[in-house]
């Protein structure tokens, strides 16, 4: 129904300062795609371009094969959940959700029926006569989602919808979003800077950096095979080893591309001897709940090592062992 194809999108708010640089991305019909990236990388900007709230400056956006740059916001039939909720303060919850339906030429009964059904699915039925100011943040969040869903949108755009909620509510809400999205089979773009959140619910993840997509893959692929150093760092790979150094010291690793770095997750570094080892001095120990993390200063810089062993002393020497299978090759830089 609504496959989105973004090609060579560029945008700048001020002259000489490009926020989006030749950004291309394809989102399949009915897919939930997350945009993951640090603050200020242009996620909201991209979402606003797709929604039509910002005019396109360069590149194109096609929905189901049609260029939409000339279609005004209000004719696109996209649903959007704003980070600040943006509920209509002068309307009840019921009116907020029904507002979009009222514009369509439907009878009063049908509007009411549809609204009530959405309110039921989102668990808001008891709140329907309250005003937005009388709801908690999480409830407002749900109203915002219900309002976007009510118009039965072709595309659902979510801009960090969970960022203002507490940890427990976040998990509940993201499962609810995932459930509704699967049920209604909407093409969905979910913007976040929380990796756990996006891995949990996405079909695919696009990692974004400085106005560009660095990697587009399934959550598993991104987690196991980050392509660039930026992606690796963003999802928790803290240890980097230059290939030149590794070759010089006779390490064995899979060498299949022209990239310069290898990386490894903290929990995959072991303590041991032999080939593929590196000596270092422990400078700190942190308790992480399920394990201990040691900060080890080596000639390659700081390494983070997660282990169950709590007996290594700060200041003592440690020989780290890097298993060939755990060493991941980055593609460039």
């Amino acid at each position: 129904m609504a496959q989105i194809k973004i090609e060579n999108l560029t945008l700048s708010y001020q002259k000489n300062k490009q926020i989006l640089k030749d950004l291309s991305l394809e989102i399949n019909n009915g897919e939930l795609l997350s945009i993951l990236g640090p603050s200020g990388c242009g996620k909201t900007t991209m979402l606003r371009l797709i929604s039509g709230l910002l005019p396109i400056q360069g590149g194109s956006i096609k929905v189901a094969g049609n260029d939409i740059s000339k279609v005004p916001v209000y004719k696109r039939n996209f649903g959007m959940v704003f980070q600040s909720y943006a509920l209509f303060p002068h309307m009840t919850i019921f009116q907020n959700v029904a507002f979009g339906l009222k514009r369509k030429k439907l009878s009063k009964e049908v509007i009411s029926e549809k609204t009530l059904s959405i309110l039921k699915t989102t668990g808001l039925i008891d709140l329907k006569d309250r005003m937005p100011s009388e709801l908690s943040g999480g409830q407002q969040q749900r109203v915002s989602l219900a309002r976007a869903l009510a118009i039965n949108p072709d595309v659902l755009l979510l801009d960090e919808p969970l960022s203002n909620l507490d940890a427990k509510l976040r998990i509940e809400m993201r499962e609810e979003i995932s459930r509704l999205q699967k049920k209604m089979k909407m093409t969905t773009i979910f913007v976040t800077h929380d990796q756990e959140e996006c891995f949990a619910i996405s079909d695919r993840v696009a990692v974004m950096n400085k106005g560009k997509i660095e990697q587009l893959d399934t959550p598993e692929r991104i987690y196991q095979h980050p392509k660039t150093r930026f992606v690796a760092e963003f999802i928790g790979y803290d240890n980097f080893i230059s290939k030149d150094w590794a070759t010089e010291h006779g390490w064995s690793y899979n060498d299949t591309n022209s990239g310069k770095y290898l990386t490894i997750r903290p929990e995959n570094i072991k303590v041991g001897t032999g080939n593929n080892t590196l000596k270092g001095k422990i400078t700190a120990r942190n308790f992480l709940g399920d394990c201990y993390q040691y900060i080890v200063e080596t000639e390659l810089g700081r390494m983070k090592v997660d282990t169950d062993n709590k007996d290594y002393q700060i200041g003592s020497e440690l020989t780290l062992y890097f298993d060939k299978q755990s060493l991941i090759e980055l593609e460039n830089k």
């Binding site: 709230l53 916001v73 209000y74 704003f82 600040s84 209509f88």
Partner: peptide, 27 residues
């Protein structure tokens, strides 16, 4: 007045003029 509220009305299908009267003015 938060401009996002106005944009939310555009998103659910109201053009700018109607939004102005139904959402901006009441607020």
């Amino acid at each position: 007045f938060d401009n996002r509220i106005e944009e939310a009305a555009w998103m659910v299908g109201y053009n700018k003029i109607v939004t102005f009267f139904k959402v901006v003015i009441p607020n």
